[in-house]
Design a protein around this nucleic acid. Structure first.
Length: 980
DNA sequence: CTCTCCCTT
């Protein structure tokens, strides 16, 4: 049986091989029956196709026809052949036929890829036509949503994206015996990926033939990449193009003006040329970087009074109707003003002259700022030549380059391939889930930069598609099954959990197609009016949803023609609406397969936008002022003025895209609430904790938290319990603030006792006016640190801890005098500094303060206003025993010098005097003077004594309180207070 | 106060 496999269809042969391999070479009876069935079918298919085969013929007019034999020979003798040829060589249509004539496309398919869908369809049509058939017979094509291939197909034309997607199911591409990769020089992401994949596949599929076709550029690179594969060059059937450099003169500052002048001068030269050569006016194609430039130049040209001249704009966003005008016949001259669409995607017929400004908007991705930029850049030499070639298709042409030749020579040969200019998240996810190994080791034609790869991984991490070790998660695997940008795929998956899948499906499909809203230049107002009912001021996503709902309602009631009319009236592109619906349907089917839940009730704004937000975490922004927003990664952005949300300017927004053109714009945005972010972004937000502090009421250490998303503060200062953040710091603060400083109400008996002990000592310090009694706080901190377990970080912890202590342990928590005193306490302290002054059976409370700057410094006696008159004013002069000596010394030292020098040394005289003095309600100074006179014979006049200028603490402070104990007057002038 | 162009499980 195995010998017969060579005559069997490849796909069946591969199945048989696989089954044999799985059964380790010993298939059972049932397997054998199955295999025999496959073999029959496979052989039947081969014979059927062989019977169908008629040798193809080649039109003599095509240059490629001259090389048919060379090409066939090269293909038969090599696994890979590179065919280089310019447009018009016929390679695209003829090479598949050469392959057919060489017997390929029998056991397997001849696969033929094109970069664009339209091209795939038309190429298939042309090949079929040349074989005298219609598509769907020997030649079929497959693009997204359409597959016309059948069992009879020998040639399958498809977009390169389709072939790439088939890799997922058919790792060896077993159904193909030949692959033709067309337009490889365009170097799209798909092409570069396919090239690498094929290079790995070739040794495993020795029977597979690969043909790479390209414009004459880059041919050597392809040949080297495929081990020196032979190159066959085919001449193009094109006419010579005369390239004339007409660099701009004038002011560099105003580029628009420069280009306008340059184009007008080139038009003059064209007219001269036509007059000299006696030629009728030929059509002109002008390459400009963008819509704005096209509009401004078209305005100028329409007013420039050019005879019999029609000016047509051409760019991708134009409606089909407007684009199709370039294919309609016309009289006189036509000038087409175009963007890059006319360089590769669209062929403008009948062009005799090209005017090339030499620039284009090229998409660049900045890894540093994560911004997609669209700068206007000089195009590469390859691109400029492609543009020039657009006027040599029907007759010799002239290309005017509005720059000089040195400029041209100094330009890069080729445009950077897309893989070096784009975010790689999608490529990485596809590669990883289809087991293609590490992207860093994949044989790319030009490997992307390490930073670009890291950046792709980071986005996948943000989306939860890979974990922090870069392993694909289950979520990532689901996402990889969706034919969507990973961000959109993320939204879809989460929306089924949020109960907003139905709406999200619509929005995501809508984001995948071009904006269906049309806004023709001459009917802008009418278009805006027609779109007005769809607009949502808070969310561009809802605007999309409104358009969809409107369209769906109409679609169900109207015929296709009526629906087309409604679209036209509403300024909606019918084609794009249909594309939108196609994608929506495709995604709906996949969601069903992936068992994602479709919500029946309509989703709330919140649940819908949370799903959207989950895919766009890196694109959040907060309003700074008027029109300016600060986005993540410190990017300043502005809402795109076309967005209806830009009118309301909400505080927080999320944007589907951030693109830099003339400014950094946030496109397709919606209002969000900042609280939604953190729960969705737990894995990417950063937390910063600060200002831990003891809060007495909560009996715990609290602090603040700042939450930021890629440098953007989404929560500036949130109060949080600090114990989870830094338990050691909490314990430290608890000991210092609560236990040592006493800012805490505890029920623990030892705390009350310790407090009492400390109060006594502190009071004694106030009385004795010294600060050297109590140990430093650090000693108390150390006391508690030694005794408190590490996990006691708050009042709650503390209370439950001490309650289970034994009596001994409780006692151990009590401070002793030995613990807290720096030196022994004077035993007489209590009598030297009494707490009451007793006079005639009344006890007046005394309080002490040691704060020289304070009004209350010293001793304060409190007396009720009722008792004020009975107060012994003179007795107060005697203060308390502990302060009397200091006061007397101060009194003597305050005497005039002539008197004072009789009592030196003063302390000795005072001590001697005090021996005979007893506190009484007599004036202190006079009593003291009397004693001094007795010792020395010197008499001191009453008015010689200092009074008011004694330090505050040496005069009794009197506080008068009312019945309720509330202070009503206070001062050191006892008699004055008494008389008031 | 306005943006090149393609492709798909």
């Amino acid at each position: 049986m195995m010998e017969q496999l060579d005559a069997c269809n490849q796909l069946e042969a591969a199945r048989i091989h696989k089954l044999v391999a799985r059964k380790k070479g010993r298939p059972g009876q049932k397997d054998l029956e199955k295999m025999a069935q496959w073999l029959d079918r496979g052989q039947a298919r081969v014979t059927e196709r062989q019977a169908m085969h008629k040798p193809a013929t080649f039109p003599a007019s095509l240059p490629v026809s001259e090389r048919v034999d060379d090409i066939r020979e090269a293909i038969e003798q090599n696994q890979v052949v590179i065919i280089a040829g310019e447009t018009g060589s016929g390679k695209t249509t003829q090479i598949p036929k050469i392959c057919m004539n060489s017997g390929r496309g029998i056991r397997g398919l001849i696969g033929h890829t094109q970069p664009r869908r339209i091209a795939a369809r038309t190429v298939a049509g042309r090949i079929a036509e040349e074989l005298g058939e219609q598509t769907g017979g020997q030649v079929g094509y497959q693009v997204r949503f359409t597959d016309t291939t059948s069992d009879q197909s020998r040639v399958k034309v498809m977009t390169d994206g389709i072939l790439l997607s088939e890799v997922q199911h058919d790792r060896f591409l077993d159904r193909y015996d030949t692959l033709i990769i067309d337009e490889a020089h365009e170097r799209s992401l798909n092409i570069d990926f396919l090239m690498g994949y094929l290079r790995q596949l070739l040794p495993k599929r020795p029977d597979l033939k690969v043909i790479i076709t390209s414009a004459t550029i880059e041919v050597e690179r392809f040949s080297q990449f495929f081990n020196g594969a032979p190159v066959i060059e085919v001449s193009g059937r094109t006419y010579p193009v005369d390239v004339r450099y007409r660099s701009l003169t004038g002011d560099e500052d105003d580029r628009d003006q420069g280009w306008t002048d340059g184009v007008l001068r080139a038009m003059e030269e064209i007219e001269q040329h036509e007059r000299a050569e006696k030629q009728p006016p030929g059509d002109v194609l002008v390459f400009l970087p963008g819509e704005r430039e096209i509009r401004s130049l078209s305005k100028v040209l329409r007013h420039a009074d050019l005879r019999h001249t029609e000016v047509l704009p051409l760019y991708s966003r134009l409606s089909n109707q407007e684009q199709n005008r370039i294919f309609q016949g016309h009289r006189g001259r036509r000038i087409v003003l175009s963007t890059n669409v006319a360089e590769t995607s669209l062929t403008v017929p009948g062009i005799r002259y090209v005017i090339d400004t030499g620039v284009a908007r090229i998409s660049r991705y900045s890894v540093r700022s994560k911004i997609q930029r669209l700068p206007i850049e000089p195009v590469s030499q390859a691109s400029a030549n492609q543009r020039a070639g657009r006027c040599g298709r029907v007759a010799p042409g002239i290309c005017f380059r509005l720059y000089d030749e040195t400029d041209f020579i100094n330009r890069p040969e080729y445009t950077d391939p897309e893989i070096l200019r784009t975010n790689l998240a999608s490529v990485i996810l596809q590669m990883t889930t289809s087991g293609l190994g590490d992207i860093r080791h994949f044989p790319f034609l030009e490997p992307p930069d390490r930073r670009l790869i890291n950046d792709g991984y980071k986005l996948l991490e943000e989306l939860g598609a890979v974990d922090d070790k870069r392993r694909v998660t289950n979520l990532g695997r689901t996402m990889a099954r969706l034919p969507l940008d990973p961000r959109l795929a993320r939204m879809l998956v989460i929306s089924s959990e949020q109960g907003s899948l139905a709406e999200t499906l619509v929005i995501i499909a809508g984001l995948s197609v071009q904006d269906p809203r049309e806004r023709p230049q001459d009917k802008q107002q009418a278009a805006d009016q027609a779109h007005a009912p769809f607009n949502d001021k808070e969310s561009d996503f809802l605007t999309l949803l409104n358009i969809w709902n409107f369209y769906e309602e109409q679609r169900q009631e109207l015929s296709q023609n009526q629906l087309k009319k409604v679209c036209q009236k509403s300024f909606l592109s019918w084609m794009r609406m249909r594309e939108w619906r196609d994608i929506h349907r495709q995604l709906t089917l996949i969601c069903r397969e992936q068992k994602l839940k479709l919500n029946r009730d309509s989703a709330s704004y919140e649940s819908l936008h949370k799903a959207i937000l989950a895919g766009l975490l890196g694109q959040v922004a907060v309003k700074l002022e008027k029109k300016e927003y600060l986005a993540t990664r410190n990017r300043k952005v502005m809402i795109f003025p076309g967005s209806k949300v830009s009118k309301t300017g909400p505080k927080w927004i999320v944007a589907a895209e951030i693109v830099e053109t003339s400014r950094v714009f946030a496109r397709v945005v919606a209002k969000i609430e900042p609280e939604w972010i953190e729960p969705l972004a737990g894995h990417v937000v950063k937390h910063h904790f600060f200002e831990p502090h003891w809060e007495q009421k909560r009996a715990q250490v609290m602090g603040y938290e700042k939450v930021s998303l890629y440098g953007l503060d989404i929560i500036a200062k949130r109060r949080i319990p600090y114990s989870k953040v830094d338990p050691a710091e909490c314990r430290n603060l608890f000991i210092r603030r609560a236990l040592v400083e006493g800012d805490y109400q505890s029920r623990a008996p030892f705390i009350a006792r310790n407090r009492e002990l400390l109060d006594t000592v502190e009071n004694l310090e106030r009385k004795t006016r010294r600060r050297d009694l109590l140990v430093e706080d650090e000693v108390l901190v150390a006391f508690y640190e030694q005794r408190l377990p590490a996990d006691i970080v708050s009042g709650r912890h503390f209370e439950s801890w001490w309650k289970q202590l034994s009596a001994d342990q409780l006692r151990d928590m009590e401070l002793t005098e030995a613990d807290i005193l720096q030196r022994p306490v004077d035993e007489q302290a209590d009598s030297l500094y009494p707490d009451y002054l007793e006079w005639e059976g009344v006890r007046y409370p005394l309080s002490y303060e040691f704060e020289p700057t304070s009004e209350r410094d010293g001793v304060t006696l409190q007396a009720p206003v009722m008792a004020l008159k009975q107060l012994p004013a003179r007795r107060l002069e005697w203060l308390v025993p502990g302060l009397l000596r200091e006061k007397c010394i101060a009194l003597v030292k305050g005497l005039p010098k002539a008197l004072r020098r009789n009592f030196v040394p003063v302390p000795d005289f005072v001590d001697a005097a005090l021996e005979n003095l007893q506190a009484s309600n007599e004036p202190l100074a006079l009593q003291l003077g009397e004693q001094l006179r007795r010792m020395t014979g010197v008499r001191i006049d009453a008015d010689a004594w200092p009074q008011e200028d004694l330090p505050k603490h040496l005069r009794m402070n009197l506080r008068v309180v009312d019945d309720a104990g509330k202070p009503i007057a206070e001062g050191r002038e006892t008699e004055k207070l008494q008389s008031e």
